[in-house]
Amino acid sequence: MNIQDFINFLVYGTAIFLIIGGLYAVLTKKYLTKIVIGLSIMDAGINLLLIAIGYTYKGTAPIFSPAVEGKTVTMVDPVPQALVLTAIVIGFGVTAVALSLVIRLYRHHNTLCIDNIKNLKW
């Protein structure tokens, strides 16, 4: 296993571990705040996966600063970066609305366990 394969495995492995961990928390936890924490971890993993797809070896950041002017340089893919820039801000908005719903549910039911919130079950 050479060094590039190891970096390859490291980056994708970390991203997929984050996705799987967040999904596990969403599926098995019963506590509402924990579920929102799982959603936020999953969001982070997907963002890392998108950035990793756009990476180029020996590439520079896509900024034509005076240091690279006039030289031929390879640059990393800028489109996933613009996408992830948007996704992080939207993810913050999603987390904020989810947590406000959690606070509202706590005020109404005085509990945070989803087993005890049975108003919609029959």
Binding site: Q4, I7, N8, F9, V11, Y12, I16, L49, A52, I53, G54, Y55, T56, Y57, G59, T74, V76, D77
Partner: peptide, 11 residues
């Protein structure tokens, strides 16, 4: 499936 996608070959 992601290991099939070459890392660092986005160019």
């Amino acid at each position: 499936s992601f290991l099939q996608l070459d890392f660092g070959r986005a160019d």
